[in-house]
Design a protein around this nucleic acid. Structure first.
Lengths: 256, 256
DNA sequence: CCCACAAACCTGTCTAGACCAGTATTTTGA
DNA sequence: TCAAAATACTGGTCTAGACAGGTTTGTGGG
């Protein structure tokens, strides 16, 4: 007897309708991401063959999507058994404290000077990170972050202008970007991938931070993602190397 | 009619001979990884179609391998142009994975140079971090960590000699410290507190890392704790600023 | 009752094509 | 001469199958 633990797959209702103008994989990725996020931890996904048939694509196409979900840690595959929903281990994450919190922890008063905010066609590298077309407009916000009035960091961040048309109008000088995103656009960031490297400050950067030219600084690149797995923000920041340290708590995820 | 699966069916030279018992993809991955690591930064790989023919596999099979290389940051694809070798700035993405595993994951060969291990009375600051009495003996291990023979980091670490008496005898030159702790002493690290700052390398440090004097580097201080809440290790490491980056995944990023 | 085995599932790997959209070069035409 | 168009690449996506090998689960036989 067959195992039959999923839908009988009768006269196919075709619940999943492809857009037709986008790659099928992208559409499937969105639908499957939602499905996975709404499922209970450890629950079993329909088999690849069943999903492929429901979406009306070849199995290899569907596997490409599942590969992506797997690499994002949303599902776990077991050969011979199936594909299981896995809720990302939040304890695995390291906390990179925000600038404000960090400064307050040091007993300093955090502040911000709005250096420049504008909407412009996205450079190629920004577009690539945001997953939009090069030349599509983005909001660019550049700020100088201060502690007790002393400049500590240069921050620049980019968001799709198409997705957040009124962002700059909604944002006051000292408003929290993430707060505006949540209140106005109902976008809640779920995670971010940050890469920290060491850069030397160009004369222009150094003068804004009031340090000697070519001093080393922490260069932080951040790609922030919402709960649908969509990239919301791409930012680059420079933190003074002489005054800043990164503290992180690292915990080991419980194994399997 | 059924399709013959594996045979080339002609007199092709077959320069790349697969093992026959392993998946082809694995073999190709190894060969391509070596090829990429030996190539200059920015050099162009043969096209997917050419590589597939050389390896005697379908293009989709080869693409699977390139996907993997791309996700490991070894190559960069540009539609319409080709696939380029990329020497990644190494990322210490998983602290508990240790240097050895981290490098192996990137297809590089980890090693150690100028290994120095000794047992000595603990200096005051080390004792304070480890939570033991000053003067109580500690094992001190200092290593120059290499990836494919290139020095990447200076590592020094301290552990209680009382708690881990046979540690130095158990550790080979290239062994992972954490692996030995787990295997021999059944100690599993659960979390760590790390502080990362920027330091300039003294001439002695710089020469061991083979970089110019006073180059900036990541200075990482780490206090690692086991699942009983006991401090296990206090270490200080210096990572080359030009070749190393710290990558972290942050959940629910806070405001900037 | 229990164990061996085979059927029926599952994912893993692979094939040999197809068409598309970018990019660079070469050819053509004003 | 010089710009536009054709061409010859590149990777991006997708198909409709195939076989391999792991994991249940039902079925018989001892």
């Amino acid at each position: 007897m067959p195992r039959q633990r999923h839908e009988p797959a009768d006269g196919r209702p075709e619940v999943f309708v492809a857009d037709g103008t986008r790659p099928k994989g992208e559409h499937i990725r969105d639908v499957l991401t939602s499905l996975v996020l709404e499922s209970r931890e450890g629950s079993l996904l329909p088999s690849e063959r069943v999903l492929a048939e429901q979406f009306g694509v070849a199995r290899m196409t569907l596997r490409g999507v599942i590969n992506e979900l797997e690499s994002r840690g949303l599902v776990r595959r077991v050969a011979g058994r199936g594909t299981f929903v896995q809720h990302p281990t939040l304890t695995h994450s390291e906390i990179f404290r925000s600038f404000s919190e960090d400064m307050q922890n040091r007993g300093m008063t955090p502040g911000s000077r709005r250096y420049r905010a504008r909407t412009r066609p996205s450079p190629r590298n920004v577009a690539a990170r945001l997953g939009i077309e090069p030349g599509e407009h983005v909001h660019s916000i550049e700020r100088v972050r201060t502690a007790d009035g002393v400049p500590m960091a240069l921050e620049s961040t980019n968001l799709s202008a198409e997705r957040f048309p009124s962002l700059l109008a909604e944002m006051g000088k000292d408003d929290s970007l993430y707060e505006v995103l949540a209140r106005v656009f109902d976008v809640r960031l779920e995670s971010a991938e940050q890469t920290v490297s060491i850069a030397r400050l160009s004369p222009g950067q150094a003068s804004r931070l009031e340090v000697p030219d070519y001093d080393p600084a922490f260069a932080v690149e951040r790609v922030a993602v919402d709960n649908m797995g969509k990239v919301v923000e791409f930012g680059r920041s420079l933190y003074r190397g002489d005054r800043y340290a990164i503290q992180m708590h690292v915990s080991r995820p419980s194994e399997l």
